[in-house]
Design a protein around this nucleic acid. Sequence first.
DNA 1: TGTTTATTATACGAATTTCATAAAAAATAA
DNA 2: TTATTTTTTATGAAATTCGTATAATAAACA
Lengths: 194, 194
Amino acid sequence: MDKQENNPKYEALVKTARELFWRHGFKRVSVQEICMKAEVSKMTFYKFFSNKTELAKQVFSNEVDDSIVKFNRLIDEDISVHDKIEKMILLKAEGTNNISKEFMQDFYMGSEPELKTFVEAKTREAWTGMLHSWKKAQQAGIFRDDLKPEFLIQVSFGLVELMKDEKLAGLFSSPQELILEFTKFIAYGITPRT
Amino acid sequence: MDKQENNPKYEALVKTARELFWRHGFKRVSVQEICMKAEVSKMTFYKFFSNKTELAKQVFSNEVDDSIVKFNRLIDEDISVHDKIEKMILLKAEGTNNISKEFMQDFYMGSEPELKTFVEAKTREAWTGMLHSWKKAQQAGIFRDDLKPEFLIQVSFGLVELMKDEKLAGLFSSPQELILEFTKFIAYGITPRT
DNA sequence: TGTTTATTATACGAATTTCATAAAAAATAA
DNA sequence: TTATTTTTTATGAAATTCGTATAATAAACA
């Protein structure tokens, strides 16, 4: 239970667990399997984590924290609004792949109320963090003052889903081109009126 | 155990099992889950299949048969060698996605010797079928006489793996372009010398 | 070298899951 | 209606998983 984050065994466990959870969700993966793939004995596993749920929390927590860091860094980055939007879409596209359906389904639907509350709390935390960055950028005049951040975030999420539409993708010769088109579309709609 | 292939329940079970096996392999999926997702009771499951292994055999068998049919149809198709090669690569690329790693790993490595022998036998069967089609095409002068079919098949398999290489893909603006380049490369190397 | 510490291998009981079947209840078709 | 199929529920046996205990092994250190 000691938080020896720099311990190689600890890191191996978290890394392996992330991969397995990502692929197969929570309940399909056993601690035995995690230990085997991470080449760590089961005893040392229980030195670090009191149970599988605790490990899952850690994995999810890391994932969310990474997203927040990336998002904040993106907001603060000294690039054009156009590039910012493009990167935001890419970040979200990457994020949806990171946190897999299988994983979230087990967290929410699974018979583990403890995990559900944890995920909800962590998600709230992530949102407030991102909104803070957003408002800072808004004050700096990067986005329109009257634009609700929740709106753009939701729209950009929706666009990621749209990008998976085959018919739409068929109109462009490459994904990059499609993203470029999206980016233009958004950027010209939200830049502050000078 | 009756082979009521047209039975909707039967088809639902096979279809659902294929999806689940494909995603999570063999041992991670329980018959309960298959029944639930297929909306078929467990009792009717055991009317059709004596156990999970038997269902897996059926799923694998179907998959291989489909591949054989597609391959043979491709060989007999009245199109240029160039198009034939291109389609062959696409077919294989599609096939690798169809038969997932998870699935095969459980079949081979899993503690189910029965499945292993079945897969091996079925694979042999598939190979002889494909080689037969090949030799027919060779006699028709579509490919070089001295070209071993095993060689090209193996090479095309290897190319599919190569296509997943990011560095290589980065050289082309789209996957289609990459495939085109590959196709040219192979076609000019194996056409009969006139 | 010997001693301490960390890690693994093995075994274990308890709890849970899964398997495959058997019965009765419900739905469907004739 | 009667006969057949399908579902529901219950069940016991087998297997899996969990979390811990203990002994063996390896690494660290003095």
